Amino acid sequence: MPNFVENHLNIVQYAPIIFFTSILIFLLMGWLYGRYRTRTTEHVVVRDSLATAIFGLSALVLGFTFANATDHYDKRTSLIRDQAHSLKQVYQSSNYLNPTDRVAVQNTLKQILKQRISKYENIKKMDDLDANNNVLTQSLNTLNEEVNKAISRAPVSTKDLADNILRPQLTHLLDTFQEGILNGKHHPPAIIDRFLFALLSIGALLSGYSMAIKKEEDWFLTALYLGLMGFALYVIFSLEFPHQLQDANLLNADFLKLQKAWQ
């Protein structure tokens, strides 16, 4: 992810508009230049083979970007469900501990849940996300220490259950949260987005130019194309940056349900 985006995560929500505006501007520029060529040159030829090659390359990169964003989104939503389930398992298995330790562990789990829900709130740059991840990591370390100490003090009747059930569940919880921390910062290289931006802009320029040269202006189809392209870009960025472009309550539905059950 480019340094500019890392330092201005709050502008990611405007990325689809920026791409759409560029496509619109280049489309109009191509159309105006095509009209100018038809007025000043007697014979103007559009090489359809070259234009088709560029459009095909644009479609290929657009499809690749969409598939990549979908994979990232599926991974993130799967981790959210796994994290919520892991929290629930450890919370339930804390009943194997003595009452004092059980209360301490459950309070730490509630704190971790609260921090995870609010991790992406008011994020303006990557440093803000790193700070929230550090706080969450500290709470996870605290939970790890509390549970391991509590297992050694667990009642004799439930100590084996705590050791054989609670301990593996804790390990899985820590692993899923660590994976989520790393995955949340994983995005495609900046050059992919730049290449897509350049291809879509050039493709729009050629479309407008070809329309004017061939005198095939169909503004209904042009508006339809622009609308579909704008929506496609919104979907791609929404999948790649869900916490900036989607409803937080929908993304955190499993966490919010768990939080409500623990109240």
Rank of each mutant, 00 (worst) to 15 (best):
L97F: 05
N122I: 01
A69C: 04
D193E: 14
Q178D: 15
K75V: 00
T171A: 14
D71M: 06
L113P: 01
L109N: 03
N134M: 11
Q138I: 13
I191T: 07
R102K: 12
L173Y: 01
D101M: 07
N134C: 02
N164W: 02
L161N: 13
P188V: 05
A104I: 12
N133R: 00
K75I: 09
S152R: 13
L136K: 04
L109V: 06
Q115H: 08
I151L: 11
L140H: 09
V105P: 04
L109R: 05
N132D: 13
L174V: 09
N95V: 10
R116P: 03
N134L: 13
L161Y: 08
L166Q: 14
A67C: 06
N133T: 10
N134V: 01
A84E: 05
D160H: 05
S118I: 08
A104C: 02
I192C: 07
A150C: 00
R167L: 15
Y96E: 11
I192K: 00
K185Q: 13
F66S: 02
N134G: 09
S118N: 13
V105T: 12
D82V: 00
L143G: 06
S152C: 06
V90I: 04
D101N: 14
K159Q: 14
D130W: 01
D74F: 02
S93A: 09
T171H: 07
H85G: 01
A154W: 14
P168V: 03
I112A: 07
T100G: 09
N107R: 15
S152Q: 12
T65V: 08
N98I: 03
I80R: 05
T65Q: 07
V90A: 03
Q138G: 14
L166R: 08
Q111Y: 14
L182V: 06
D127L: 13
H186N: 11
S93F: 03
T108R: 13
E145I: 01
K185F: 09
V147E: 14
D175K: 00
P189C: 02
S78I: 03
T65Y: 00
S94V: 03
